[in-house]
Simulated assay, not measured.
Amino acid sequence: MSRVFNFSAGPAMLPEPVLRKAGEEILDWHGSGMSVMEMSHRGPEFQSIIDHAEADLRELMAIPDNYHVLFLQGGASSQFAAVPFNLLRDKGKADYINTGSWSKKAIGEVKRYCDVNVAATAENENFTWIPKQGQLDLDPSAAYCHMTTNNTIFGTEFHYTPDTGDVPLVADMSSDILSRPIDVSRFGVIYAGAQKNIGPSGLTIIIVRDDLVGHAEDWCPTMLDYKTHADSGSMYNTPPTYGIYIAGLVFQWLKENGGLSAMAGTNQRKANKLYRAIDGSDFYQSPVTPEDRSYMNVPFTLVKPDLDATFLDEAAAQGLSTLKGHRSVGGMRASIYNAMPEEGVDALIEFMHEFEKRNA
């Protein structure tokens, strides 16, 4: 078996030690005689799995006691509706910062339920930059302010946390959660699909402040009401048990490797190496404003676009997989989440140098 370096934007690669551990336990979890996929979510075995996963996540992110941690389904996209259902109350309006495709989709959904103030947008320059604090036109009477912290398609990332005053800040952190330490207390709600830095697709994690739970609209579906899941310990219905198990193994792996501060250093080092290789070349270009570049997703283009297909074919032959850029940007995109080892980035840079020598 030969594993590739998988640069997919998601579902993304998982840490190899996690996969090996899961493989060891696939038939018999801790002497139970069954797989995690087979055990009852109501049984003591699975309860210990979800309890440990929550405790480790709370430790990693330093989540304050006045926040619920929910392990749900439906992807981050289901939260585009869940957030207004739970937070609007009687205000009828919300702020949204538009920095890419996912924030646009969130805006498109919430417009069905309330008035939306687009506090800032980078769409005028194809989302190649992030609005700064002074560029945010925030409404102090809004029910909440929504942001997408990292933009997988366009390769931009917030390197600061917006100050929204008394208005709760809601963040879609699907593609950069656990990549560095954050101050959870600055946010009212954090939500994230698991398939980038947490685990397999199918699991969605929500971190929500206590005072924002229990105020859902009367017409809110039961399954989108945060109180439903907070009151039941994420067990109102059958949760994504195997996804939670894998997430727990990822949390353990992060703790064993120094936690989020150590992860942040590794991620910055990986990204800086790759950006230096792009900036130091006349053959490759980055479309993103330098101070807003993502540490997770690195889009780049070739000055000779007719070579894109050749680049991708030859990269794949070298074990460098899933590098094709999104159609909105073109070119290439290297997603270098937590599980991407530094040697994977080094191998990509070496291939880029060699390809340039042969084709410049």
Rank of each mutant, 00 (worst) to 15 (best):
N98G: 03
E123M: 04
G108S: 10
A122G: 14
K104L: 07
K111A: 14
V116E: 10
V110D: 05
N98R: 02
T99F: 01
C114Y: 06
A119Y: 02
I107R: 13
G108L: 00
I107K: 06
K111T: 15
C114A: 13
A122P: 02
E125C: 03
T99K: 00
A106R: 06
E123P: 03
K111I: 15
A122Y: 08
K111M: 14
I107F: 09
N117L: 14
D115T: 15
T99Y: 00
N124Q: 14
A106Y: 02
G108N: 12
A106C: 09
V118W: 02
W102M: 01
G100C: 09
N124K: 10
V110H: 11
K111Y: 12
Y113P: 12
E125R: 00
D115F: 08
T99N: 04
A120H: 13
A120Y: 10
E109H: 06
V118D: 05
Y113I: 14
S101N: 05
N98P: 03
N124W: 03
Y96F: 10
G108A: 12
A119L: 08
G108H: 09
N124M: 11
D115Y: 10
E123Y: 06
N124H: 08
I107H: 12
N124G: 08
G108R: 03
R112S: 11
Y96V: 09
I97R: 02
K111V: 14
N98C: 09
V110S: 13
A119I: 07
N124P: 00
K105Y: 07
N117K: 15
D115A: 15
N117P: 15
R112P: 14
A122I: 04
N117S: 15
V110G: 11
G100I: 04
A120G: 04
D115R: 14
E125F: 00
K105R: 09
N98D: 13
R112Q: 13
G108I: 02
G100A: 04
N98L: 01
I97Y: 04
V118T: 11
N117M: 14
T99A: 00
W102Q: 05
R112L: 11
N124A: 13
G100N: 01
S103R: 01
W102Y: 03
K104F: 04
K104I: 12
W102V: 05
G108C: 04
E123V: 06
K104V: 04
T99E: 02
I97K: 00
E109V: 15
V116N: 07
S101R: 03
C114R: 09
Y96C: 06
T121A: 10
